[in-house]
Every structure is written in structure tokens, then in C-alpha cells.
Computed example of a mutant assay.
Amino acid sequence: MFSNEAMAAYVDEHGTMAREGTRQPTYLVELADDIVKESMRRGSRDNITALVVRLRAPDGGERRTLFS
């Protein structure tokens, strides 16, 4: 199971790897699938749903970290 902080760290790490790789067009779908699989690996078994939304800074600037 993921805490909010653990999920943010997982998405940050795995999302960055996907963006840098060759899976550009589908990395959000694959990231959501990876989150579900990792949740099951961590012991979750019921009502697992993952929705990944990419948010961009309105001015195109650097993103800000939600959890520090």
C-alpha cells in the first residue's frame, strides 16, 4: 500500500524514467498500469484504481515539488 508521500515519490521516479525513455506517447497509461501492479505487489487486493494526470505549469516554468 502507498502513503501519499510514497506514491508521489514512485510517480516522480518512474514518470521521469518513462519520459526520458522511448515510451513518450503512452507513458502515462503505462505508469498507471505500473502503479496498479506495484500496489498489488505491496499487498493491496481490492478496489485498486490509478489515474495519472500530467499537469503543466501555466507559464511553462519549472514544476514545483508537492512533497518535500
Score class of each variant (00 low, 15 high):
38 E>Y: 09
43 G>K: 03
42 R>N: 00
63 R>T: 13
17 M>E: 14
61 G>K: 11
12 D>V: 08
22 T>W: 10
24 Q>V: 10
48 I>C: 13
30 E>W: 09
44 S>R: 11
15 G>V: 01
45 R>L: 13
14 H>T: 01
64 R>S: 14
2 F>H: 00
3 S>T: 15
24 Q>H: 10
27 Y>K: 11
41 R>E: 15
29 V>N: 02
54 R>T: 09
65 T>D: 14
1 M>H: 08
65 T>L: 12
8 A>K: 01
68 S>L: 13
9 A>G: 03
9 A>N: 05
27 Y>P: 04
63 R>W: 13
68 S>P: 15
55 L>D: 11
15 G>M: 00
21 G>K: 01
8 A>F: 01
7 M>Q: 09
28 L>D: 05
19 R>Y: 03
19 R>M: 10
16 T>Q: 11
15 G>W: 02
23 R>V: 02
24 Q>Y: 07
6 A>N: 00
39 S>F: 06
59 D>R: 06
13 E>R: 08
42 R>A: 03
55 L>Y: 13
48 I>V: 15
67 F>P: 02
16 T>P: 08
20 E>K: 11
66 L>Y: 08
24 Q>L: 08
40 M>Q: 15
53 V>P: 01
26 T>S: 11
21 G>D: 11
6 A>P: 09
6 A>V: 02
8 A>G: 06
21 G>R: 05
47 N>R: 12
19 R>N: 06
67 F>G: 06
7 M>A: 12
38 E>P: 02
42 R>S: 04
13 E>M: 04
42 R>D: 04
7 M>G: 02
26 T>F: 07
2 F>A: 00
3 S>V: 05
34 D>L: 05
28 L>M: 08
13 E>S: 10
55 L>S: 14
3 S>Q: 01
19 R>E: 06
53 V>A: 13
52 V>G: 07
63 R>G: 15
19 R>W: 01
36 V>A: 01
13 E>G: 07
66 L>F: 12
8 A>R: 01
32 A>Y: 06
23 R>K: 13
24 Q>P: 08
35 I>L: 07
41 R>Y: 07
40 M>C: 13
43 G>N: 00
6 A>Y: 00
9 A>P: 00
34 D>S: 15
3 S>G: 09
1 M>A: 11
13 E>V: 12
